[in-house]
């Protein structure tokens, strides 16, 4: 499998892989919420680089896109909600340091040993000319059911999460009989209603 790749690609995978692990470790070393968040983002961007080296362009760019947006939003939420308010206060991402270190190291070793010892099947499949097209055909074809279930599931989770988090319901907005012409919001939105 690896032999399919050029020397450049192999080097890139090794360097970026090491970088992503290092950035992942940095998450638990740095002492500010913002730095931890953006160390995690750096780790994801290194993974993006690995995917690019594997010629998985679409997956790589989508990873960068989704993860950056996710991290940016997460940074705001963590900073607004959690223990490290203004961010420059020394803090740590580690809880139960010993236990989590053991579990983390154990999982890392198990996975690494597994990856290098398992006799992976070597298919006769040739690499596609256009991995993006192949991915699209898989998602919209043979794996459509799975993708739709996951998509709808995620969407439902987002909506129910928002519903649980907000204290205001439609009765607060439109009155007990839901007849108010305009919702009673603390900040009016942009639509004329």
């Amino acid at each position: 499998m690896l032999t399919d790749l050029s020397a450049w690609a192999v080097t890139a995978v090794v360097v970026l892989g090491a970088l992503s692990v290092a950035a992942g470790i940095a998450v638990f070393v740095v002492d500010s919420m913002a730095r931890a968040t953006f160390a995690l983002l750096a780790s994801f961007l290194a993974v993006t680089g690995v995917l690019i080296a594997f010629d998985l362009d679409y997956l790589a760019f989508v990873t960068a896109l989704m993860m950056t947006i996710e991290m940016a939003i997460m940074a705001v939420f963590m900073i607004m909600f959690m223990m490290n308010p203004a961010g420059l206060m020394p803090m740590t991402m580690v809880h139960n340091a010993r236990g989590s270190a053991l579990v983390g190291a154990g999982a890392f070793v198990a996975l690494t040993v597994g990856i290098w010892t398992i006799d992976w099947p070597v298919g006769e499949v040739t690499r596609p000319a256009d991995s993006t097209r192949q991915l699209g055909e898989a998602i919209m074809g043979s794996h459509m059911l799975a993708m739709l279930v996951i998509g709808v599931g995620l969407f439902a989770t987002i909506i129910s999460g928002t519903l649980l988090a907000t204290a205001r319901g439609r009765y607060d907005r439109f009155g007990a009989d839901l007849r108010a012409a305009r919702p009673n919001d603390p900040v009016p939105g942009g639509l004329p209603r």
């Binding site: 900073i79 203004a86 206060m89």
Partner: peptide, 22 residues
């Protein structure tokens, strides 16, 4: 405080969530 600037604290916000306040 950090460098003479004290840290923010949390308080209930307009929507009833516990948020950082500065």
């Amino acid at each position: 405080d950090v460098a003479g600037l004290p840290m923010a604290e949390t308080a209930t916000d307009r929507d009833g969530l516990q948020l950082d306040e500065l």
